[in-house]
Amino acid sequence: MTDADIGARFAQIRVDVGAATPKAMSDRLGIGENAWREYEKGKGTPSWATLQKLAALGYDLSWLMTGQGHMRRGDNAAMQSVEPEFMGRLVEAVARAHKELGINLPEVRLGHVSAEVLADVFAAAEGPDEYPEQLELMLKRLKRRLKSATEQPGTGKRLA
């Protein structure tokens, strides 16, 4: 495992969060921009407080440090117990969120984004009875990230 590998995982988290730049990510976490830039280079050591913030966002710290396992906590365990109807509603909602903002989402990416939202739901819910409520919260978060990305130039998102 190289420093570059760890740095790439920090960058992957930033992209997953929807932060277009290291500055946006550092602002979100309340840390210095240079600190986050150094993490993405595989240099510097994040404080325990920074690691706790990443864990609170649902990221698996073991994955971050080693590259082993899943990026998000709970990605593996609960995935087997999702109801097909719930998953269908989730995929439709993710597609609708993108369409409302004029973002053309390829089907493969729709699957990726839907899986990420599902992982967030699983990480936040204490059980299946909380899935619908958590889905609504995660969809609101997704819509905010998408809206922010379309409003920031250079994010790679553009209106269709």
Score class of each variant (00 low, 15 high):
3 D>T: 04
3 D>P: 03
4 A>G: 00
5 D>E: 14
5 D>G: 05
5 D>P: 06
7 G>V: 06
8 A>D: 13
10 F>T: 02
11 A>R: 13
13 I>E: 07
14 R>S: 13
15 V>S: 13
15 V>W: 08
15 V>Y: 05
17 V>P: 10
17 V>N: 08
18 G>W: 13
18 G>F: 14
19 A>T: 06
20 A>C: 05
20 A>M: 06
21 T>G: 15
21 T>N: 13
21 T>C: 14
22 P>G: 12
23 K>P: 04
23 K>E: 15
23 K>W: 09
24 A>H: 12
24 A>V: 04
25 M>D: 12
27 D>R: 02
27 D>V: 01
27 D>K: 02
30 G>M: 05
32 G>S: 10
33 E>K: 10
36 W>Q: 03
38 E>G: 04
39 Y>W: 06
40 E>W: 02
41 K>S: 07
42 G>V: 03
42 G>N: 02
43 K>V: 12
43 K>I: 09
46 P>Q: 04
47 S>C: 08
47 S>P: 09
49 A>W: 01
49 A>D: 12
51 L>Y: 01
54 L>H: 01
56 A>D: 14
56 A>E: 11
57 L>M: 12
57 L>H: 01
58 G>D: 05
58 G>P: 02
59 Y>D: 08
60 D>K: 01
61 L>H: 00
63 W>Q: 02
64 L>S: 06
64 L>R: 02
64 L>A: 03
64 L>E: 02
65 M>W: 02
68 Q>K: 14
68 Q>I: 11
69 G>I: 07
70 H>E: 13
71 M>N: 02
71 M>G: 04
73 R>M: 11
74 G>E: 07
74 G>A: 10
81 S>C: 06
81 S>K: 05
82 V>D: 10
83 E>Q: 14
83 E>D: 15
84 P>D: 13
85 E>Q: 11
86 F>D: 10
86 F>M: 12
86 F>L: 14
88 G>S: 08
89 R>F: 05
89 R>T: 04
89 R>L: 10
91 V>R: 09
93 A>G: 14
93 A>F: 07
99 K>Q: 09
99 K>W: 03
100 E>W: 07
102 G>F: 03
102 G>C: 06
103 I>W: 12
103 I>C: 12
104 N>G: 01
104 N>E: 08
105 L>Q: 04
106 P>T: 01
107 E>W: 00
111 G>H: 03
112 H>D: 09
112 H>Q: 04
113 V>S: 00
116 E>F: 02
120 D>N: 06
121 V>M: 11
124 A>D: 14
124 A>Y: 09
125 A>E: 14
125 A>G: 14
125 A>N: 14
125 A>C: 15
126 E>V: 09
128 P>S: 10
129 D>H: 13
130 E>A: 15
132 P>C: 12
135 L>I: 07
136 E>G: 15
